[in-house]
Design a protein around this nucleic acid. Structure first.
Ligand code: FES
Ligand code: FES
Lengths: 161, 161
DNA sequence: TAAACTGATACTATATTGATATCAATTAAG
DNA sequence: CTTAATTGATATCAATATAGTATCAGTTTA
């Protein structure tokens, strides 16, 4: 059971990059390179996010993408919904004889409850939250390469070595 | 995002039938007919459950399948695990530069926590529990067709008509 | 006007899920 | 002791979903 598909995965990571370099346009190419994603595939993902109003773009030289809203207003939940559709149980179980009374079907009830729990949880995890934690944990070196570089005392952990 | 695949779906419903007619062998054919499942596909599912010790079988005429353990000891969680594999995040996000320190990766942490919640919930939903509720709600007519028929006062709701 | 970009879309490949088909072995019943 | 009902074990196929590639037109800046 795969929770996140590649599209959602790429979407989150792309958004994190945009969130890290807020205010400037970041090209699909640079994201693809830095995050090792297939370029055209990523472009499709980005366009989908434009359609959903999460990001905006600028064409032409020096063009690229930028967040359209505050990172805290982009829950992972929404990305899952966009790229994987809303969580749904196996259609309708017991459709034949066993469960004749739909509104009261136990399993259906149970699963919808669980669905809700999951959705609530993913709603709480936003790009902003991830961004903050990543910053706090100082794993942002590559993303920040230029921009607001965390002046020295940064490489003490030496993770990339 | 599909929570339950057909295999899990069929498995649950087959087990409910076995649970309803406990003590006697129920053939794959009768399950397939009554529950409207593809016969051979169902057989595959049943064999898988035998391998996992959930049910036992008897070959030959009047053969079939029977629960190998108490319904309360069969959590839906286990069925999901058998037929859909353990819940797993999209491999490992941020595998490249962003998240260099795996053990501390935020999103990973969040998702594993959510996974746990889901697993706990599905652990609590057992075949026994479903069975009881179904019984209580008197939606068992078709399953109980013969066997422990709930003497009269049963068809008042007239669902199958 | 050329190069660096996005918009839009069509296409291909791979993996997963769902379903079917076949044949040998076993068992109960007549 | 033969036949029909049944499971065991596999092999194959079809349908769908996911992942990835390619192409070309339009836009913008230098
Ligand atoms: S799950 Fe659909 S009626 Fe029970
Ligand atoms: S998800 Fe794998 S290291 Fe962060």
């Amino acid at each position: 059971m795969k929770v996140l598909t590649k599209k959602t995965d790429y979407a989150i990571r792309a958004l994190l990059m945009l969130g890290a370099k807020k205010g400037s346009y970041v090209s699909a190419k640079s994201i693809a390179l830095e995050q090792d994603m297939p370029y055209q595939f990523l472009r499709g993902v980005l366009q989908e996010m434009i359609r959903h109003g999460l990001i905006v773009s600028k064409e032409g030289v020096q063009g690229g993408f930028m967040l359209a809203k505050a990172p805290d207003e982009i829950p992972v939940r929404q990305l899952i919904e966009i790229f994987q559709g809303t969580v749904q149980v196996s259609e309708c179980m017991f459709r034949k004889q066993i469960c004749a009374n739909r509104s009261r079907c136990v399993l259906r009830h149970e699963i919808m409850r669980i669905e809700e729990v999951v959705n609530n949880e993913f709603e709480k995890v936003t790009i902003g939250k991830l961004l903050r934690t990543l910053r706090a944990e100082d794993n942002m070196r590559s993303v920040l390469k230029d921009g607001e570089a965390p002046d020295s005392q940064t490489r003490q952990t030496g993770v990339m070595s």
